[in-house]
Computed example of a mutant assay.
Amino acid sequence: MRSNKVLVTRGPANVPDQSPRGAAAPRGSGFAGGFANLTEAVDAVAAVDSLLASLAASRAVLMETVREWAADQPERFGAPEVEADDVAGLAPELVEQLAKALRMPEGSAVALIEESRALVHEHPRTLAALRGGHITHAHAQTILGYTDGLRRANRVALETRLLKHARTTTPGELSLVARTERERRLRPERSTEPRIGPRKGRSGRQRISASPTGRPTR
Rank of each mutant, 00 (worst) to 15 (best):
G214T: 03
A166T: 08
H134T: 13
H121P: 03
G214A: 00
I196E: 10
V45H: 12
R103L: 09
R131T: 12
E106C: 08
G33W: 02
A99D: 01
A56E: 07
S175E: 11
R131F: 10
L112D: 07
A56W: 04
L144K: 07
A41G: 03
R218Q: 14
A91W: 10
L51I: 11
A56N: 03
E83F: 07
L119V: 08
I113G: 02
G145W: 00
Q73N: 15
H139R: 04
A138T: 04
L174M: 05
T9G: 11
R199Q: 14
G132V: 09
S108L: 10
I143C: 04
G201M: 03
D17T: 04
G149M: 06
R131A: 15
V42K: 13
S209W: 07
Q73C: 13
R218E: 14
Q73W: 14
T168N: 13
L51S: 08
S211E: 09
S116R: 03
R187C: 01
E173Q: 13
A101K: 10
F77M: 14
A157R: 07
H165D: 15
F31A: 14
G34R: 05
E115C: 06
P105R: 02
A153D: 15
E68Q: 14
V95Q: 00
T217F: 14
T147M: 10
G107M: 05
N37L: 04
E181M: 09
R155I: 09
L52V: 12
R187V: 13
L163G: 05
L144D: 01
A99T: 08
R187E: 13
V66N: 09
K5M: 11
S209V: 09
A53H: 02
A44K: 07
M104K: 03
V45C: 07
P105G: 06
G197T: 01
R184Y: 05
V45E: 11
L119Q: 05
S58Q: 14
Y146C: 06
H134Q: 14
A210E: 09
L52A: 11
L144W: 00
A53D: 01
R27S: 14
H134F: 15
D85H: 13
R67Y: 06
L119A: 01
R27E: 14
R190A: 10
I143Y: 04
G11Q: 08
H165Y: 13
G133W: 02
T217H: 13
E93G: 10
L98T: 11
S54W: 00
E173C: 01
S116N: 06
E114S: 12
G30C: 11
E106K: 15
P12C: 05
F31G: 05
V177R: 05
Q18P: 02
R125D: 15
E189A: 13
H121C: 11
V15L: 00
L7G: 15
D72T: 15
A13K: 06
R185H: 06
I208C: 01
S54K: 00
D86I: 00
L52W: 06
A32I: 12
K5S: 11
L90Y: 01
A91M: 04
